[in-house]
Design a protein around this nucleic acid. Structure first.
Length: 450
RNA sequence: GUGGGCGUAGCUCAGUCGGUUAGAGCGCCUGGUUGUGGUCCAGGAGGCCGAGGGUUCGAAUCCCUUCGCUCACCCCA
């Protein structure tokens, strides 16, 4: 080695390396989610990591757009790393009018956001999204299916104490307008109201009073009642809807929102989703600009510092921006990296161990051919097998197997080679056996099964 | 974007009213055991104390600057 100063090994804040031990767990979880997606008739798709800048701009709202990573590119063209998988889906769908509708696809790929990372909250600058969407239907059965599927996914991962909140964006928007909010103040109003669950009605009132745009005494006074109702988890969906109907029902937008919530609730019951794990929350806003109707978000109520595990909604106008005709769609995103954060903190991460079944030791150079032949035969039998490459002490080779958690070690020394045998050792029990070489695969499988 | 906390070995940290050669545990390497791991025993490697400047006879310790990490808020997956 030269004496030059080394380059400091480091990674960009908010990005992460996954060592094999962690990657095996992540893959295990993704496999579970993928299986649920396919169970509901969704199929995989992928899109590029970057898109033309104008494809992404103007879709997420002011807050989101600031977080898009732009990429300079020659010729004056500008690209950007994708911010989510929904907008690329919309673009892709518009490019393929031949797709049979409804188009049901899932997509599991990384996205990038120029946020301040917050590891304990599971917030990263690069993270995987497991996105599922149903394109081409107005039916709210699709929305309910998405919520039900999210429920299945999280339970398949072994998570139980989650809660999916849902509403229709039409409700909060309609209510805001009812209270005198304008197009300019709508966003701020809904964002403040959305916090009611976390900070309580009184704090929301203070926030409204502090705001330059929203500080209208009459507006705030009449809206307290709504917030108290909205933040009350004990009130059931029926009671909440009746209140909204009685108070705001004449507004066509609110009337439509109420109908959406009613239909989705009914479908969720039919789909058998446990009512302890979903709730109608009329204060739910959601930040992304493209949502037009139902919105949903899954959280861990007992661990509010961890952000939402999943979130989505209906976006009936987004694809039309690219297609030039109306194409309704609904979908959600499950944040697998955030789920890993949550499961780790809750002690729910499964121990997946190693994927390697057998280490075939190298006794000395003369025995190398026999070791290679033995490994090849074990692989033919469907086992995951690695060879040791250097004629080091067996102690070192066994030590390696132990550290990797490899269950079976195979030794082929001069004695075994002469007799046409292989010595197999079960590293968990320490038991050893000599078997004829052709029987080795079956013997290994027997060890793995016990 | 706003506001706190922290940077000492690969990891977790101790040490700081300024005072010789900077420590522990874990991990790593070697040997005890030339055909056998996890335990045990013995030994070893590994640190310009985040970086730069200042004060001082003397700085890991005090001051300034800077970089990095982290927590909370915001927003989200």
């Amino acid at each position: 080695m030269s004496e030059k100063k080394k380059i400091q090994p480091r990674i960009f804040k908010g990005t992460q390396d996954f060592l094999p031990e962690e990657m095996l767990k992540k893959q295990y979880l993704i496999d579970k989610i993928r299986a649920v997606f396919m169970r509901f008739g969704f199929e995989p798709a992928e899109t590029p990591a970057f898109e033309y800048h104008e494809i992404l701009m103007g879709k997420y709202g002011e807050e989101g757009e600031k977080l898009i990573y732009p990429l300079a590119y020659k010729g004056g063209r500008t690209l950007a790393l994708r911010y989510d998988l929904t907008v690329p889906l919309a673009r892709m769908t518009a490019m393929h009018p031949e797709l049979p509708m409804p188009f049901k696809r899932y997509q599991i790929q990384p996205v990038w956001r120029a946020e301040k990372a917050q590891i304990r909250q599971g917030r990263f600058r690069e993270f995987y999204q497991c996105d599922v969407d149903t394109v081409g239907t107005d039916s709210l059965l699709a929305d309910a299916e998405i919520i039900a599927m999210t429920d299945h996914c999280l339970r398949a991962l072994g998570i139980e104490n989650f809660l999916t909140k849902f509403s229709s964006r039409k409700l909060l928007y309609g209510i805001a307008r009812h209270y005198g909010a304008t197009d300019e103040t709508l966003g701020e109003f809904t964002r403040v109201i959305d916090k009611v669950d976390k900070i309580g009605p009184d704090a929301v009132v203070n926030a409204l009073l502090d705001s330059k745009n929203l500080n209208q005494r009459t507006l705030i006074d009449t809206c307290i009642e709504f917030m108290v109702m909205a933040s009350d988890r004990k009130k059931d969906t029926k009671t909440k809807l009746e209140y909204l109907e009685k108070t705001f029902g004449k507004q066509p937008e609110i009337f439509a929102g109420i109908a959406e919530v009613r239909q989705i609730s009914a479908a969720l019951k039919s789909l058998g989703v446990d009512e302890a794990r979903w709730v109608f929350d009329p204060a739910l806003a959601r930040g992304l600009a493209y949502y037009t109707g139902p919105v949903f978000e899954t959280v861990l109520p007992d661990h509010p510092h961890i952000g939402s595990l999943a979130g989505g909604g209906r976006y009936d106008d987004l694809i039309g921006l690219y297609a030039g005709r109306r194409v309704p769609a609904v979908g959600t995103t499950i944040g697998i990296d955030r789920i890993i954060t949550a499961m780790t903190q809750l002690g729910l991460m499964p121990d997946t161990g190693t994927s390697t079944d057998v280490l075939v030791c190298l006794f000395d150079e003369d025995c190398a051919p026999a070791a290679l032949v033995a490994a090849a035969k074990l692989r033919d039998a469907g086992l995951n097998v690695m060879n040791w490459f250097e004629p080091t002490k067996l102690k070192k080779q066994f030590n390696y197997a132990d550290k990797r958690g490899i269950r079976v070690v195979a030794v082929l020394g001069p004695d075994e080679v002469a007799r046409g045998e292989i010595t197999l050792k079960d590293m968990t029990t320490g038991e050893q056996q000599n078997v004829p070489a052709p029987d080795a695969a079956d013997a290994v499988k027997k060890i793995l099964d016990r």
